[in-house]
């Protein structure tokens, strides 16, 4: 069972997660017009920028985050932004979309100039997230856990970050037990996705480089 404090933490993070979304106008743009590769690149870049802004808004609502050292806040966001974006995009790809939307989005990403060797692991990740059939609460908590990773480069006060991450991990663990009593491995599987995210993050810099070149 979740304690009152844990339930409050869950509600708070979930509410913040639901509130901060990429503006619908921008999301619509992705589906509507036809673009050249160059315009596609710009649009996806604009989308990524918006994503980061939304992520910062979400993060500052995670209880305790704003009490961290200012430079540590930046180090955490810088270290996790790409992973949080992959998680959010995975959710978009997993959700039931109106007829044809997933195909249009996939086509757009495939025609953005990113080389195939980076695209395949990304779509594999989306698929592996899809298989978990995650609830909105799990997405919100996992995103918060990703952001509050104490081992990011340049974080000075790792213990302060750990103190924020641990209660969120415990809420997720209990939530998984409650929601998936038949799947004792569910929590471990969610944490396993964090490892996959690290790999995607690692490749991201190379991916950007290849994207720029082409």
């Amino acid at each position: 069972v979740l304690s009152q404090d844990q339930q409050a933490l869950l509600n708070y993070i979930l509410e913040a997660y639901n509130k901060h979304r990429v503006p619908p106008d921008m999301a619509k743009k992705l589906l509507q017009e036809q673009f050249s590769t160059e315009e596609n690149f710009l649009l996806l870049t604009e989308m990524a920028t918006s994503h980061v802004q939304v992520l910062v808004e979400f993060t500052k609502n995670i209880p305790g985050f704003q009490s961290l050292d200012h430079e540590d806040q930046i180090a955490l966001l810088k270290g996790s932004a790409v992973e949080a974006m992959f998680l959010r995009s995975a959710q978009v790809f997993t959700r039931k979309q109106p007829q044809g939307h997933t195909e249009v989005l996939e086509e757009r990403i495939r025609k953005s100039g990113i080389s195939e060797e980076y695209i395949t692991p990304m779509f594999n990740f989306y698929k592996s997230i899809g298989e978990l059939q995650m609830l909105q609460e799990e997405h919100a908590l996992l995103t918060a856990i990703t952001i509050l990773s104490p081992d990011r480069p340049y974080v000075k006060d790792q213990q302060a970050v750990e103190r924020l991450q641990e209660p969120v991990l415990e809420v997720l663990r209990r939530f998984c037990k409650l929601q998936h009593p038949q799947e004792p491995q569910h929590f471990a599987r969610l944490l396993g996705r964090l490892t996959e995210l690290r790999t995607l993050n690692h490749h991201h810099a190379e991916m950007l480089e290849s994207w720029r070149t082409s």
Binding site: E46, Q53, Q73, L77, A81
Partner: peptide, 21 residues
């Protein structure tokens, strides 16, 4: 344009916007 900003700049600006509020 936003597309020319680095990740850290975008984060700093977004956090600063928060402080101005």
């Amino acid at each position: 344009p936003a597309s020319n900003l680095g990740l850290e700049d975008i984060i700093r600006k977004a956090l600063m916007g928060n402080m101005e509020e």
